[in-house]
Every structure is written in C-alpha cells, then in structure tokens.
Design a protein around this nucleic acid. Structure first.
Lengths: 334, 334
DNA sequence: CTGAAAGCGCTTACAG
DNA sequence: CTGAAAGCGCTTACAG
C-alpha cells in the first residue's frame, strides 16, 4: 500500500497541490472556508501524514534540534532540563531530540549522514574537527552549555557552585576546607575544574587557608581513607565541599563508620540537591542548580540562532545557585 | 555561501552525479581507482557533506531510529542502555536519537511533522491514537520494551524482578513480606504492577503469607510510618521488597532512626543495584537487571523490523535478574 | 482566490 | 565503466 501523498489529497479534494500545502501549513488565510474544509476532509479520509523529508528538502530548513547528551552519571535535574527544553522547543515548532555522544570523534561526524538538524546543541564544547562538517552543512551550534562555551552559550555557572559551597562553609566559621572530586569522565572533568576553581578562589578571597584538593572516588574504602586524612591533618580539615551529592553521601557514610561526627568533626556539603539528601542521616546540605532557568535560556538561545531574524539573542541572566543548608553543615538542631 | 552539493562535486571531478553518488555510498566496486580518487579529492577540496534529507527522500528510507524515553527518574542503568543501543545501531548504519515523550498525546503526534524515523522505539506501549500516524507513514515500531509489549518486543521481564526479591527473602526464611511501591508517574506504574505481581505470585507459590502491599513515597516521614506499621503488624512483617533502591534506602534510613535493626528486625531488598547501595550502612541487597543483554536484544529487534529481509527476528532470551545479596538481608557478617 | 511549474539534493533503474 | 533522466514529496515564487 503506497504512501498517501500531497498529490493524492489534492486529487481527492479537487484542488492543486499548492492549495493543499497551504492548508497543511496553516497559511490558509486567503483560502475560502469551503475549500479549506474540503481539503481537510480529504486529509482525514485518506489519512494523510505529510512527509518530513519532503518538507525539509523543499523548504530548505530542518525543524529538528539535536542535543548531544553528556556522558556523565544520570541525574534527575538533567532529565528535567531535557523535558523543559523539549517542551519550549516544541512550542516554538521544533522537535528536540537527544543523542548519546559517540566515544569516537569520527563516529560523531558520521551522525550527520542520517540526521539533519536545524541546530546542534552540546553540553560540552565541540572541537574544530567536530564542528567542521556542521559549519559546512550550514548547521548552527549552541555548544558549551555547561562549560567551555562562549558567555552567551553557557547556561550554568559552575564556578558559582564551588563559590556557594565555600561561602556557606566560611559563613559557618570553617577555615580549613577540603574539596573532594571523584574520578570522572572527560565530560565531567571540565565541570569539576570550574567548580573547584570557584571554591579555591572564594577561599582565597575570604582569607581562608588554601583549599586542600582531594580525589576521592565513589567508593567506601577511598572515602574512609580521605576522611581519615582530613581529620588527621594539622591543621585539621573541618569541612569538605564535595563535587556532587552522591560523593558527599559516600563521605558521610564513611564518617559515620569511623565515628567522625558530622558536622561537628567534619561538615559536608554536596551539589545537586538530590532527594536522597533529605533522607540520609544527618540530612545533607547541598547546592541546588536552577536548571529551569537554564533550560529557558538555552531554548531562547537556540531560537535566536535558528531564526535570527525573528528572535533576538536573550540576555544571559542566571539565578545564582542556592545553598540548601541541612544537618550535615548546620547540625541536628537546625 | 551556497551549500556544496553532489552536482558541484561532479562538476569539479569531471564526472556525473551518478558516479559521485556511488563513491559517496561506498558502492564504488566497479569504478576504477583513478576515477574514485578524483572524486574523493573533489569531495575533500570542496568540503562536501551529503544532505541527509536529499538522501532520505531519494532513497525512500530513513536511517534514524527514534526512541521515546520514559518519564521515570534518572538511572545510570538506563543511560548505559541508551549508550549500548546507540552504539549497536550506529554500527549497523543507523543514528539513534531519544526524545522526551510529550505529556500531551496530540503533541506526540506532532513530533512526526519534523522528524522522519526508520523506526520508533518506545519503553511503554503506544496507544492506538499514537500508533496511527506512524502506521500511515509506514514507520514500524518496537514498543513496550519495559512493559506492555508483545513477547518479542519486551526486553525486561519485570515480573521476574519481583520474583527474585521474594525468592531471596523466602530462602532466608522470611514468611511475612511487604511490597513497597512509591507514588509514581504513569510510566512507572505498569512496571511497578508487573514487579509487584511477580512478588505476590512467588509468595503464593512458596506458601508464604499473602504479601502486604504498601504505598510508601520517597519521603522520610512516610517511610517511618510504614516501618512502624510493618513492625507492629501481627503477624509481624519481617522483610520488605522495595520497588527500587532509592525507596529501599529511604526505608533503611527510617529503620535506623527508629532503632529497627536491619536485617534482624526487618530485612530490606531493593532493585537497580545502585552504586550507593554499597555505600550505605548496612549495605543494601538489591536486584541487578541485565540491561546490556536487553540493549542487544532491542537493537537486533529494531534491525529485524527495519530490514526484515536481511535481519531475522532475534530469539528472546533474557538472563534472569540477579540478586545482589548484601548486609540488609544477610546481616553484617556476610 | 488558485494552479502550473521549477526546484530542493539526492538515488537508481536503464541505456549505452 | 559511465551518464542522462526520472522521480522521491514537498514548497514557493509567479502568473493568471
């Protein structure tokens, strides 16, 4: 059974393909009600579904936004970000799809043999080799949302995350702070670097001791060793800012097993504001990222890049990350 | 600057478009080395990137597999599944993209106005209204991977998950078991139903008391109330199978706060085998799903549906879920 | 208000 | 071994 085409509809409705096209695309202002109705009837009768490829080829523009997902660990905030972005873009008449960044750079380039984006969005920066085929195909990009992008592209200020952690700890009187980063993928590394330097810089500004940077993987043994090294250090480390909540919880559990009191012996603050953070004991202080605002900004930025004539580049205004202070820094009576 | 087309390459190389097409598509067996080389040179010189839309329209086939992501909470295993699937499909010459299922069914239908899949893959079953436009456009589907699909489509046996939990608890001598499900999204519900009935049925088969089904949200207060109700019940509930690890950890923390010993007073087993489960105290017993095998199966199934002539439908063989027994059911000396 | 026609960038029988 | 030509399903000036 052959696919139903525009032509079939035109024939059935007794009009030209041009007219059908106008009706399908909602540009039927100048088409009399009766004609339009006839066309719509034919569409329904035949079960006509327009061909996205025919349309893309003829119109010369794609309506698919391709987002290259980061390879980091799963996170609810990221999923929510994706939903927000998809929704905004759909409202604007685009379909937003996500794809896993292939480990191999050559494979990344192969992607565009089959899919044809209006715009490519990337969490990470894209390197020149990856960018080239897109430029040549005339596909605009919005890259480096999380890190490495231009100021207009960047949607999350990762340095501010590290800053917020140290500000909070400094406000509570801590002067000897450690920054704990897990072992991570290439993608996460740039994020971690930015958070860490925010932490280090803030400690400097506040006149605290130099931040002790420790690599502590998400692993009970490593966490135990790290906690021991912090509590034995002279001067003693009294607070730790962790890269993320999962790592913070690992450290929290290790402290409990070692009999190191949290927060009295060691205050702990993570990042992500995972639901789990409110369930552990003591509850975990964390930094909450405003990805709703980030998604809105990214959507606006994409539209500006795809349809520069109708959409201005949005101003970059991001709410600073918010500290969710809980027991692991404030104590149990908080 | 106009886009470089096949024609441009043909002109530059002094051959016909036909020849260029053959070279680009690697069907250049019958083209002499010298000609092929000239074409490749021209492609490189001009920076030619083939147009996916032109190709799709002319060839009559798309090479894009669209997966509709579930709306559930983020999970590393799912991300890994996506990567596995993407990789297999890319190897087979397809690009795999994921999209967020719009909350609105009508919007779901709008998706295909812009994108043109070779196949649509869905975690959940697709309802007839959603299926219709795809059928009409001749797009095959593989749906109900997690639940609700046909036997060939289903990639994860959720009932077996519930079974495995109860088998494990029964083996340890528990006879009064509760099944804890969180409040959840529509998507998760069918999964939960399947797991739960696996649990209930197994309890029956093993001659245990009827399973007590409790709805316990991921919330410290609710978990506390649930733990109290289980320990106060007569006969006493001695073990709980939780829908997932996050919920299990919530229950575990509540037990700790209440002074309910785990596993002596209450054994707990989750699902997902989250890394965090090894970090909490006591470490959490869990059920590990084999999504690697599932991804391979889904990939094979997709290929069978997209290219039935060259790919046979793969046999459905799934490794049963594996119980990761840890302290929360075995005790500390395990 | 409506339609014939050109064209988007490719692929693929088919003829030579 | 190579190419002219038709055609995939649409959109969009343009002419009437």
């Amino acid at each position: 059974m052959r696919r139903v085409t525009l032509k079939d509809v035109a024939a059935a409705a007794g009009v030209s393909a041009t007219t059908v096209s106008f009706v399908v695309n909602g540009r039927a202002d100048h088409i009399p009600e009766s004609t339009r109705h006839r066309v719509e009837q034919a569409i329904a009768d035949l079960g006509y579904v327009p061909s996205a490829r025919g349309r893309a080829l003829a119109s010369g523009r794609s309506r698919v936004v391709v987002c290259v997902s980061p390879a980091g660990p799963a996170a609810d905030v990221i999923e929510q970000f994706k939903r927000d972005l998809s929704h905004s873009l759909m409202t604007a008449g685009f379909t937003c799809v996500f794809l896993e960044r292939p480990s191999d750079g050559d494979q990344f380039i192969q992607l565009w043999r089959h899919i044809d984006p209006a715009c490519v969005v990337s969490w990470d920066a894209l390197d020149p080799k990856e960018l080239l085929p897109l430029e040549r195909a005339g596909v605009p990009t919005v890259a480096g949302l999380i890190t490495g992008g231009t100021d207009t592209d960047r949607a999350v200020d990762q340095e501010a995350v590290g800053r917020a952690q140290v500000e909070h700890l400094a406000d509570l009187g801590h002067r000897h702070i450690a920054y704990a980063m897990p072992v991570m993928t290439r993608e996460e590394e740039s994020t971690a670097r930015a958070r860490r330097s925010g932490a280090i810089e803030t400690a400097r500004e506040r006149g605290l001791a130099e931040v002790t940077v420790s690599t502590v993987d998400i692993d009970a043994d490593q966490a135990r060793i790290a906690v021991q090294s912090w509590t034995r250090a002279r001067p003693r480390i009294t607070a730790v800012a962790a890269y993320g909540d999962v790592q913070a919880i690992t450290i929290l559990e290790a402290s409990r097993r070692l009999g190191v009191g949290v927060p009295d012996d060691l205050a702990i603050i993570g990042v992500d504001d995972l639901p789990l953070g409110e369930l552990v004991f003591p509850t975990l202080s964390s930094v909450s990222l405003d990805l709703h605002a980030a998604a809105a900004h990214v959507a606006a930025r994409i539209l500006a890049v795809v349809e520069p004539s109708t959409n201005a580049t949005p101003p970059m205004e991001q709410r600073p990350p918010r500290v969710m202070a809980r027991e692991s820094t404030l104590g149990a009576d908080a």
